Amino acid sequence: MRQKDLASILSITTASASTLVDRLVRDGYAVRVAHPDDRRSVAVQTTAHSDKEVRDTLGAMHAKMLAAVESYPPEGLAVIADFLGALTEIIRTDHGSHDPGTEHPTTS
């Protein structure tokens, strides 16, 4: 991935993306490499160190999450999937239509 692509995905400036990548490289989480499709471009690639750290950090959490899922009967999982799907659809269709200056009504 190019830095400019990262900036676009994160909705930050290219200068901020450069600073972010500088820090990731400095701390061993990423390296800058020649872009595979355009040798004139530089791509950002994660390192084995970053992969190991993510797996070490999230491995136990993932196991607990899987155990939680497996504790529900299939019909319960179907209800949960429907609920999450409905929420996802609301967020997908409503994304960008919210005016930050508008207050949400509170429910009682």
Score class of each variant (00 low, 15 high):
residue 74 P to G: 05
residue 12 I to Y: 12
residue 32 R to K: 07
residue 45 Q to E: 11
residue 85 G to K: 08
residue 20 L to I: 11
residue 3 Q to H: 03
residue 36 P to Y: 01
residue 13 T to S: 13
residue 13 T to G: 05
residue 35 H to L: 00
residue 63 A to M: 12
residue 67 A to H: 08
residue 19 T to H: 10
residue 64 K to C: 09
residue 27 D to K: 05
residue 28 G to V: 04
residue 39 R to M: 06
residue 41 S to C: 06
residue 43 A to F: 08
residue 48 A to R: 15
residue 53 E to A: 14
residue 49 H to C: 05
residue 82 D to L: 06
residue 19 T to K: 15
residue 72 Y to N: 05
residue 16 S to F: 03
residue 46 T to M: 05
residue 7 A to Q: 11
residue 7 A to K: 10
residue 42 V to M: 07
residue 5 D to I: 05
residue 76 G to L: 02
residue 78 A to S: 10
residue 42 V to Q: 10
residue 47 T to P: 01
residue 61 M to P: 01
residue 68 A to H: 10
residue 56 D to Y: 09
residue 23 R to H: 10
residue 68 A to R: 12
residue 80 I to M: 09
residue 18 S to E: 10
residue 47 T to C: 03
residue 29 Y to W: 14
residue 64 K to Y: 06
residue 49 H to P: 04
residue 43 A to R: 07
residue 42 V to G: 03
residue 77 L to C: 06
residue 16 S to Y: 07
residue 5 D to G: 12
residue 11 S to E: 14
residue 4 K to H: 07
residue 30 A to I: 08
residue 24 L to Q: 02
residue 50 S to K: 05
residue 33 V to D: 00
residue 34 A to I: 00
residue 68 A to N: 07
residue 77 L to K: 14
residue 36 P to N: 01
residue 13 T to V: 01
residue 5 D to R: 11
residue 12 I to M: 09
residue 52 K to P: 00
residue 19 T to V: 12
residue 11 S to G: 07
residue 56 D to R: 13
residue 82 D to T: 06
residue 6 L to R: 03
residue 31 V to H: 07
residue 83 F to S: 13
residue 67 A to I: 01
residue 83 F to Q: 14
residue 30 A to L: 01
residue 40 R to L: 12
residue 83 F to G: 07
residue 55 R to N: 13
residue 6 L to A: 03
residue 4 K to A: 07
residue 77 L to M: 15
residue 64 K to D: 14
residue 31 V to E: 12
residue 63 A to E: 15
residue 84 L to F: 13
residue 54 V to Y: 09
residue 61 M to W: 10
residue 48 A to C: 07
residue 33 V to Q: 00
residue 84 L to H: 08
residue 62 H to V: 13
residue 27 D to I: 02
residue 14 T to P: 04
residue 39 R to N: 12
residue 65 M to I: 13
residue 32 R to L: 03
residue 57 T to I: 01
residue 3 Q to S: 14
residue 46 T to I: 11
residue 67 A to M: 09
residue 46 T to K: 03
residue 28 G to K: 06
residue 66 L to D: 12
residue 37 D to L: 15
residue 48 A to Q: 15
residue 55 R to E: 10
